[in-house]
Amino acid sequence: MNRHRYLRSSSRSKDSSISDADPREKIKDCCRKFVAFMCTQVGVGALVVCYAIIGAFGFREIESGFKDNTTHQVEEIRNRYAEELWIVAHHNNVFNSTAFFIDTNAKLKVFQNEMVDIIKKGYDGRESGQQWTFPAALMFSLSIITMIGYGNLVPKTTWGKFATVVYAVFGIPLYILYFLNMGEILAGCFKWVYTWLYQCSTKKGENKVPKRIIVPSTACLWVISAYILTGAIMFAEWEQWSYLDSAYFCVTSLCKLGLGDLVPGTTSEEGHESKLVINFIYILGGLGLVAMCFNLMREQVRVKVQEFREDFRQCLEDTRIRILDCCNRYRMEEY
């Protein structure tokens, strides 16, 4: 028996030494560890950030070389209507002011309609190379995978549109994985802090601390409100928005509505690129907080549903006992 055991152990050691010496096995083992790490909370967060950075480089490379003739088109429209207004002024002169105002209003209305159509297509006075900076492309990548979709920056090339579709197909499941994992880790950290504060605030001997402490939904609402208030003050100071507009932008972004009427860092002022990067961090962190509140509120709802189920079951049991008691009394009275 000892001999057989020795032979088995020696054969196992030989196999392990062979597998250790095999470089293919080492590569496979490293790949398994890398995939396992990427499936953790930290790995998924890093993967989302790297995916957004790769997308930013890709979209910037594709779209920055696009030659847009919209600027020349706008110049031609302005020059044409300036000439037409000059002809109107020269024809009517100052003797017929009513005809002058009627003709100029008609020309300006047509000019306004043409300019509105151009602006709706994404024209803001800048060339493609000026629009597709790295921070702008980074924010565009985040808006795709988080399904916010501001719409202030859109791809115009065929390859850019194709890359957007492929990028969204792989990026949205990755964001959902980030949403679930980050919600779990942040919920665990917040629950630990809340439990510690609860135990510190409870006097010894006054009330025994319950075994399971549930974070109330009001605490989650306070955290989200504080985060929105911080963002409202920050964007109001940077963008010279009103506090209502800043809070409106924060709420619509964290709720993934993405209306696109207010987007920070879209002007050509100095420092707008850093605002886009900070907006990227703010939105990504805020979505993690939303995931945390979702997990904590879901736990509270489960506890409430379980308590309701137990109370309802107890109510049914009491009702059954009372009905049986009444039936027994009725039978006793008959006999």
Rank of each mutant, 00 (worst) to 15 (best):
H4D: 09
R5L: 06
R5I: 13
Y6W: 14
S9A: 14
R12T: 14
D15M: 09
D15G: 08
S17E: 07
S19L: 15
A21I: 10
P23G: 07
R24A: 11
I27D: 12
C31G: 12
C31D: 06
V35R: 11
V42E: 13
G45P: 03
G45C: 11
A46Y: 11
F57R: 13
F59T: 02
R60F: 04
E63A: 03
F66W: 08
K67R: 07
K67P: 04
D68P: 01
T71H: 05
H72L: 08
E75V: 00
E76K: 11
E76D: 06
E76P: 00
I77E: 03
N79L: 12
Y81T: 03
E83M: 14
W86Y: 09
V88D: 00
N92S: 01
N93E: 07
S97D: 02
T98C: 05
F101I: 01
I102G: 00
N105D: 06
L108K: 15
F111W: 04
F111G: 01
N113E: 10
D117V: 00
I118Q: 01
I118H: 00
I118S: 02
K120Q: 15
K120L: 10
D124R: 03
G125A: 03
E127A: 05
G129A: 11
T133K: 07
F134P: 05
P135W: 01
L138I: 11
L138P: 02
F140V: 04
I144M: 11
I144Q: 09
V154D: 10
V154C: 08
T157N: 02
G160I: 07
K161V: 05
K161C: 09
K161N: 14
V166T: 12
A168C: 04
A168Y: 00
A168W: 03
F170M: 12
I172S: 01
L180A: 04
I185G: 13
C189H: 15
C189F: 13
K191L: 14
T195I: 03
Y198I: 01
K204A: 05
G205E: 02
K208G: 14
R212V: 07
R212L: 15
V215T: 02
S217Y: 13
A219M: 13
A219R: 11
L221Y: 13
I224S: 08
I224K: 11
S225Q: 03
I228A: 07
G231W: 03
E237P: 10
Q240W: 13
Y243F: 14
S246N: 15
A247C: 02
Y248P: 12
C250P: 09
T252A: 10
T252E: 15
C255Q: 13
L257T: 12
L257P: 05
G258C: 06
G260A: 11
L262Q: 10
V263H: 02
T267E: 09
G271D: 07
V277A: 10
N279Q: 10
N279D: 12
I281Q: 15
I283R: 14
G286F: 06
L287W: 05
A291S: 14
F294Y: 14
N295W: 12
V301Q: 14
V305P: 00
V305R: 09
R309G: 04
Q314M: 05
C315L: 13
C315Q: 08
L316H: 08
I323F: 12
N328F: 10
R329Y: 06
R329N: 06
R331C: 06
E333P: 00
